[in-house]
């Protein structure tokens, strides 16, 4: 009921913009130069909602295998057999970054598996707000698996606010505690290789995921599995196996297909020297 009401509100608020607001850009209330983005937002919302509804109605949706995510359970299993902990890092960005939220969502799934197997979990974080969110998610996961007694607040711990102080602490944990599995999911910067190479030297199985293309080569070189770009955002839905969440992924794929068609059309039109009209449709400030 609530979701249906929210759907109606989002449509109404996006569609019923008074026509008087479309004046000259500098004077107007509405930024007319951003109309292409508005069109994209509306299209994207409609597609995601439609696919989610189809998924709710029981339509079978095919989602390709993501090896890195299938390996998560295997990695936790290995840690359980070895009697060693699992180290999970939800990136080093603040909670207002969507990558961190994706990292926290995956943490919930990983925590359920570690709770089920009673495998120790260590989650060092760089920001106190991520600490609060992480503690909430892990506590909920342990509680849902009926292992509330195994949960303690120090599973998710704040280690340092400085980027390289954080890295030094986590590297220390890797070398002293020798986790059997290291999972990096979220936003990473220059410390990505420092962490992944140390984990590699410690002999841990490593799974990484980030949406930052400049850090991906480092993770690919030093980790066993790497989730690239969109796979990070798809991970929580993929691991949940819930049709409603998978519907959102299919909707995303549909929009991507439209974009690929637009890119091919744009390449052809530019090659045929048909002017800039097509390119200008996508121009936004």
């Amino acid at each position: 009921m609530l979701i249906a009401t929210l759907h109606r509100i989002i449509f109404l608020s996006l569609i019923f913009v008074p026509s008087s607001v479309f004046a000259q850009e500098s004077d107007s209330l509405f930024r007319t130069s951003r109309v292409p983005i508005l069109f994209f937002v509306v299209l994207f919302s409609i597609v995601i909602i439609l696919y989610t509804r189809w998924a709710k109605l029981g339509k079978t949706l095919f989602i390709r295998k993501i090896a890195g995510l299938d390996a998560v359970e295997e990695a936790v299993g290995r840690a359980t057999e070895m009697g060693k902990p699992v180290l999970y890092i939800p990136g080093i960005s603040e909670i207002d970054e969507i990558e961190t939220i994706a990292g926290i969502a995956i943490l919930g799934r990983v925590a359920r598996i570690t709770a089920q197997y009673e495998t120790p979990l260590i989650v060092p974080v760089r920001y106190p707000m991520v600490l609060a969110a992480g503690q909430e998610v892990v506590e909920q996961a342990y509680s849902e698996m009926g292992k509330k007694d195994s949960y303690h607040k120090d599973i998710v711990r704040y280690v340092a606010g400085e980027q390289f102080a954080f890295t030094a602490t986590v590297n220390g944990i890797m070398m002293r505690d020798r986790p059997a599995a290291n999972i990096y999911m979220g936003g990473f910067f220059a410390e990505s290789l420092l962490l992944a190479e140390t984990g590699n030297a410690a002999g841990s199985i490593q799974i990484a995921g980030t949406a930052r293309p400049e850090q991906l080569p480092f993770f690919i070189a030093a980790c066993d599995y790497t989730l690239m770009g969109e796979e990070l955002y798809a991970a929580s839905s993929y691991l949940s196996h819930e049709p409603i969440l998978l519907g959102g992924l299919k909707g995303q794929d549909f929009v991507k297909m439209i974009l690929v068609i637009c890119i091919i059309a744009g390449c052809l039109l530019i090659t045929l020297d048909s002017g800039d009209w097509f390119k200008n449709i996508f121009r936004a400030e």
Binding site: L6, A105, R109, E136, S237, I244, L245, G248
Partner: peptide, 9 residues
């Protein structure tokens, strides 16, 4: 839209 709630556990 409240479809994804995994970030709240």
């Amino acid at each position: 839209l409240g479809i994804e709630r995994t970030y709240m556990g």
